[in-house]
Computed example of a mutant assay.
Amino acid sequence: MSIVVNGIVAPGFEPVAQAFEQAFEGRPAMGAALHVRQHGETIINLWAGVADARDNRAWTERTPSVVFSCTKGLVSILAARLVQEGRLDYAAPVARYWPEFAMAGKDRVTVGQALAHQAGLSAPRLDLTEDDIVDWDRVVAILAAQEPLWPLGTGYAYHAITHGWVAGEIIRRVTGQSVGAYFRDLVTAPLGADAWIGLPEAQAATCAHLAVSPPLIQLWADEAAKPAPNWPYKAMTLGSALPADLVTEDGGFNSPRIRAAEIPGAGGVASARALATMWSATVAPTHGVRLLEDTTIAQATQTQSQGVSVFGGEPPFSRWGFGFQLDSEARRYLGDGCFGHDGAGGQVGFADPQRRIGFGFVTNWMMGPEDQRATRIIDALRPLV
């Protein structure tokens, strides 16, 4: 292979490096990075490829990229921390913290149900625009006023992007800070992590440029052809706010305007090192920081939603706790008890409380259901830890 892999691997973990290198086969426009910590210390730190195929800018150790739904996992850390501090209760109605949310029959929706994709707000009934989704107050007001898409207690459906606004507004009402500001103060500043919910202008030029593989383009073209109302499709596009693939050459999450906005369901930006460091800090002291206690993790990772959604679908199905994606057939981590979240196109971040591991894999070459890159890396790591 012509790919040059940079970084370090602790002795004994060479099979993981081999799996990382193999992820680049046949993908000359791909860039990616992998970082793994155990007991707070780095055991794997690798990067390779191009951050932007348009000018052949190389991927570096600190290259950040949009991590899509990995952001939901990071926001769920924030919520769990507030529960740990006694400032938020999973069993309480959302309206206790955000009174306007009680509109349209949502007065009984709990914080836990909202985090577990059960609130009935997986897609907006209105057709949103890009102007709408970069305006925090407008989009949360629309969701607060919306009647749920299904009766409370009858099931769940993945809140692909709306999840972040609902969770983020709960956090804002409790803390008095935007979700991006609270994330910075609680997580990234203490850890020195290259991660943001709302990318600062000073970092805009460092971000990787995203490209979409043909199978993923075809997948969403097929989805778009289904008859309306197609709520899972609208959960991704929000109307005309985003392309179904989430990116175009200069639009969607390749747009500086979108990246700068706080869109905590999908818009987080992080390096692989940052992703692994943040997840490590949930289960082990990392740079002197421990974000969550073991008892908090046990509570937050109880299964809340799994199986077929209210809109149907085909297996394999994911499994969720209170916002955290849990080990399942759809996303295998290192074993039962692991928690985190993957993201569109191939991103993966998670923690393993038993092995005290934090894991981060980030790539700008977005793939669909055929993607096995992170899965094979995790498979290679599993027998070594």
Rank of each mutant, 00 (worst) to 15 (best):
C207P: 09
F359I: 00
V308T: 07
G73K: 02
A167K: 10
L88T: 07
A181E: 09
E370W: 11
G340P: 03
M1H: 15
T110G: 10
S280P: 06
L384S: 05
Q84W: 14
Y182V: 10
R273I: 15
Q177W: 14
L143T: 04
Q218N: 02
Q22N: 09
E314H: 10
W136Y: 04
Q325T: 03
A241S: 06
I378R: 00
G239P: 06
F253Y: 14
V187N: 01
Q177C: 03
P11E: 04
A195H: 05
A157H: 05
F317G: 11
F311K: 07
V134C: 09
V166I: 00
F13V: 00
E329G: 08
G358I: 06
G73P: 13
A92Y: 14
Q84L: 13
V134M: 12
V139L: 11
R138M: 03
E14C: 11
A208E: 00
G349A: 12
G360A: 07
D352W: 12
S122K: 09
L291A: 06
N230I: 11
P151Y: 08
D137P: 02
A114N: 10
V289W: 05
W220Q: 05
G26S: 07
P64A: 08
I297N: 01
A260K: 03
R331S: 04
C70H: 04
K234N: 08
L199P: 13
R57K: 14
A195Q: 03
M366I: 11
A48Y: 12
W59N: 06
L78Y: 13
V36I: 08
I217F: 15
K106T: 08
H39W: 08
F183R: 10
W165C: 02
D132N: 13
E370D: 01
W196N: 11
D194H: 10
R81C: 09
W320R: 00
A167V: 01
P232W: 03
P148L: 14
R172Y: 13
Y90Q: 01
S69Y: 11
I44P: 11
I133E: 09
P11A: 04
G198F: 11
L275W: 00
L88R: 12
T277R: 09
I161V: 04
V9A: 02
A181I: 02
T363M: 03
F350E: 06
Q302G: 07
R376I: 08
C70S: 02
K106D: 10
G346R: 06
R108P: 14
A167M: 05
T277V: 09
M103Y: 06
A189Y: 15
